[in-house]
Amino acid sequence: MTSAPARRHAIDLDDFSGDEIEALLETAESMKEVLAREIKQVPALRGRNVVNMFYEESTRTRISFELAARALSANIVNFTARGSSVEKGESLVDTVRTLQALGADIVVMRHSQAGAPYLAAQHFRGSVINAGDGRHAHPTQALLDLFTIRERLGQVRGVQVVIVGDIVHSRVARSNLWGLTRMGAHVTLCAPPTLLGPAAYWTATWPEVRVCHRFDEALAGADVVMALRLQKERQQAGLLPSLREYTRRYGLTPERLERLGERTLIMHPGPMNEGVEIAPEAVVAPNAVIEAQVTNGVAVRMALLYRLAG
């Protein structure tokens, strides 16, 4: 096993090498074993202070990090913007400095503004883990997606992945682009033009990526379909004619499910809008791994916390 150099922050997967991701996924496998035990706890991070700093509500990600930190015996506290000094106008920089002074070792951060974790990292001596910033990045989601694909298909290299939906607004899509391309998967982005933008905007950064506006074309030969949440506000903002048309053209409908066959993995980062981007039948299909993604999230986050704690 090649030992990757020390890492302080995990803000996006853009600065993770393939080897480093591989090592993390292997650690996550061990962590998954720990989680399968009756006593789901190891002392690896005993005495460390982890703070969940969530400027945006996200119950599932917050709980996942909380369980991951507890399974490693870390002290974890939750900080939510609501009802805190943030509502009284405290800046992000001041908040981070305060957490620093309180003795935080690792800050897990969710924020509505892209790039906010970089600002936090500049003013924090410990580690910053990005738990989602605006449309920018959600590295632990991408890691758990890689873990799940590898677990189910044996490897990531050479796998055909279709990411479909509201890509332009999706931090999940961006982090997955880094992770999947670095691990050798073939990625197709599929969305209406209003939720994607010009193909060249994407291929300039990720040259291997294919862009396709027709879902049925994109699905041919797919090993994995990753459907993204469509916020209903997108239709109100004029980006879509109607949810009905969106579902017809880009939804994972029962008809498409049928055509896919049973070997194609169906993934969704959640939370889902059932009946919009994904049909209820697809959620419970045998090849759907949406719950496994959630389960694997805890193991992957344990692996990352462990890695940053050195």
Partner: peptide
């Protein structure tokens, strides 16, 4: 808006 729309805004996820 936060910046110019193009390759960089797409990469950084900034409006």
């Amino acid at each position: 808006w936060a910046m110019h729309e193009g390759v960089v805004s797409t990469r950084l996820g900034l409006p």
